[in-house]
Amino acid sequence: MSINRDKFGALLFLCLALIYGFYVDDIPLLFGDEDAPFNARTLPNALAWLLGVVSFIQLILPTNREAGSLEHAFRGLKWKRVVILAALMVFYGLTIRQLGFPISTSLFLMGGFYTLGERRPLVLILTAVGVTLAFWGLLYAMGIYLTPGDFFYYLGWMSNDA
């Protein structure tokens, strides 16, 4: 049995409405706000109900055959390269402070080019480093200075005195 794509989406949003609605009660209220016509919980409460009702309606309405099955929607997708690119983005976020903008950006771009099939070392390195340094220089000219990275400070190659 395969689930219809639209129904699966509606089911996901119904779950979201329930979870969101569950956490509405965690919103703290100021003293006296409980009886106010509008407080911090009013809109979230309404939204949880509305989303719940809309997704429930979509669940019980007749199946839209044109939407196809969930399996069909996810068939033939090239996940591997996308997962690697996502990992590279996480790596970029983790290293931009430590390694600094020039190194982490160059590594990110080189990794991205390589993942997508670029194998010429000269293109890989020159494009990544060239674009990174040009962008770094442009930012510097615009008055935005990005430090070379904490790593260099730890090594003592750079000084914080400047």
């Binding site: 983005m89 991205g112 080019f113």
Partner: peptide, 11 residues
């Protein structure tokens, strides 16, 4: 080429 274009958009 797309292998260069997509990482640029991401960056």
């Amino acid at each position: 080429p797309q292998q260069l274009l997509v990482p640029f958009v991401l960056f």
